[in-house]
Design a protein around this nucleic acid. Sequence first.
DNA 1: TGTACATCAGTGAACGCGCGTTCACTGATGTAC
DNA 2: TGTACATCAGTGAACGCGCGTTCACTGATGTAC
Lengths: 209, 209
Amino acid sequence: MSTAERRQNLKDALVAAAERTLAARGLTGLKARDLAAEVGCAVGAIYNVVDDLDDLILAVNSRTLAALEGELDAATRAQSGAPRGGERAIARLVRMAVTYLDFAAANTQLWRALFDHRLPEGRALPDWFVAQQIQLFSHVEQPLHELAPDLPSDALALIARSLFSAVHGIVTLGLEEKLGVVPLDALRAQTTLIVSAIGSGLAARRARQ
Amino acid sequence: MSTAERRQNLKDALVAAAERTLAARGLTGLKARDLAAEVGCAVGAIYNVVDDLDDLILAVNSRTLAALEGELDAATRAQSGAPRGGERAIARLVRMAVTYLDFAAANTQLWRALFDHRLPEGRALPDWFVAQQIQLFSHVEQPLHELAPDLPSDALALIARSLFSAVHGIVTLGLEEKLGVVPLDALRAQTTLIVSAIGSGLAARRARQ
DNA sequence: TGTACATCAGTGAACGCGCGTTCACTGATGTAC
DNA sequence: TGTACATCAGTGAACGCGCGTTCACTGATGTAC
């Protein structure tokens, strides 16, 4: 096994261990020493292969984004029997929102890491990571466009963002327990309610014109 | 000045200083030594008057909640010319949501502290603080009840929570800059759009029955 | 194929920093007589 | 009003802990001849 391969293996093992740790203990539970112990190397070795613990977290977050995108894709492809047009677009938006909720519920800690992680002051997110986020948004924009084909793309992007934010808010406060626990079923119902209300609102707006 | 008065003064000064610091530097910028320096006492003196830094943060958060509630009250009292019933209730919900957004935009750091602060593992929020949160929710429930008088109160509470969560999501991701900056005006428009869509959806649901 | 040398992965103890909290001490405030 | 004493606010140096990161060292891997 070449040196380069060994390096790559170590890096892969570190990312995998970091992912397990994040899933189990969250961002604040990730420690260099624990990682080293889990992977079976010295603390110092980590820094041969990675600049930073932040590097590792970004790698895990990227995997989480990819997994989420996979689920959204699958949900989108599973066609409902609804007719083309408004109803179908709304149904798709609802399905995506519920998929998002379910993903967050099933991978709460990994999903939280996505939003809670902050790079140290002054350090910016790498471009590839930002691109991956934008990619995700395009999933929302497509059915929105179907719903309101007359909207210019900047308005569409804004609405996509708001819709995502609204769903994200429901999921976030829903999975938190500060305000009492809400069962997952009830959260699904609420998500459906609110996304279809927004969808119908948008469709109605077009009808009014 | 009695000893008790001096104690109270010190505590007040500490809360005020903590509030200024939180507003200026956020949760992670609050340090015992800085507070002592700002108030003009020794570090140790803080612990004569307060158990914990967490105690101070809770005190500030409580003030923030009260300020927010004040604004919501004012916004609610400013009656619009809309007729009674559905339209009026929706208008009120929209006004409250925009007020919430404006408050968060004007007091971003204090408002963030409200949601970002976590007590150490195993320590629960004091009852008076939880009560204050619940109190806030009642503001949302009232117009919702006007909009859907037939809903049982537990369903109402759930919808109030979802509506709040949705708005909170829009405000949170809007004031964050991870996904690019959105001007406050645009955020207001988006908030209005989404709250009225949800409001109409709720009203329509009633009409359908 | 064998040998000498250079590179660099791998080691883990130690560095360094930040920071909440404590603690032994002091002196002012308040009380009892 | 004055005196003796007790209490406790106030002090700030020191404790203690957690933890990311470095660094001088070692030995295995790979290369050149």
